[in-house]
Design a protein around this nucleic acid. Structure first.
Lengths: 107, 107
DNA sequence: TTAATTGATAACCAGATAGTTATGGATTTC
DNA sequence: GAAATCCATAACTATCTGGTTATCAATTAA
């Protein structure tokens, strides 16, 4: 899923959205109202951001009466971890190869 | 540096830019021309993306005659790893706290 | 049943962004 | 020295994006 990756990166690129996600990771389940108080933007803006986070799989929602409770799903961050590890691995692999080459040249 | 984080996320949010970085991680140092062949966009577009990557600390450049060689600096990904780990940690911490609570209630 | 609250959606707008072509400076090649 | 190559920058444009206000459906409270 390279598309999943793209969605994830794009979703987390916005600071307001990242702050909402951080809030949910730290404080646990929160209503839209509670999140709006903290967010510094209007309630519709918060709702839109939560929609984006939800489509990225980063949050869950749970309806209870007229309120909606959101909670974080940090497991969805895994592809991001994978990607960064992959990049570092590629780089180190080439580094090791170079080291080997130099070692052989040294003999 | 929360600002560093933001720059990092924003920089990697673009797929063309991410592809350039991946290319550099995998293949090592490359000239702008070589990168342009692979990129699927014009040379000026590639140059601009490389500029953004450079300002984010994700790549280095080295001038040699009329060519510019770029190389990846995957160590710059660290803040990203840190952030994701932090988020997972927050979440697990709350999870553990909940578990403790349930355990105490069970007695 | 009427009024108030909660959150989602619609419609709109300003600014950011990623692409393009044109061009120019620096270097190498002929 | 003239021509060609390499890359960066400038100028412009279309699209995306994040914000706003207005509104509406659903639920709860009076």
């Amino acid at each position: 899923m390279p598309d999943t990756r793209d969605v994830l990166f794009k979703t987390l690129a916005d600071p307001t959205r990242r702050a909402l996600f951080e809030q949910l990771c730290q404080q646990g389940e929160q209503t839209v109202g509670a999140l709006t108080e903290q967010a510094g933007v209007s309630q519709p803006a918060v709702s839109k951001h939560l929609g984006v986070l939800k489509r990225a799989g980063l949050v869950f929602d749970r309806h209870e009466g007229r309120q909606t409770h959101y909670s974080a799903q940090p497991a969805a961050l895994t592809p991001l971890l994978d990607w960064t590890s992959e990049m570092k691995a590629f780089w180190e692999q080439r580094f090791d190869a170079l080291e080997d080459l130099l070692k052989r040249m040294d003999q």
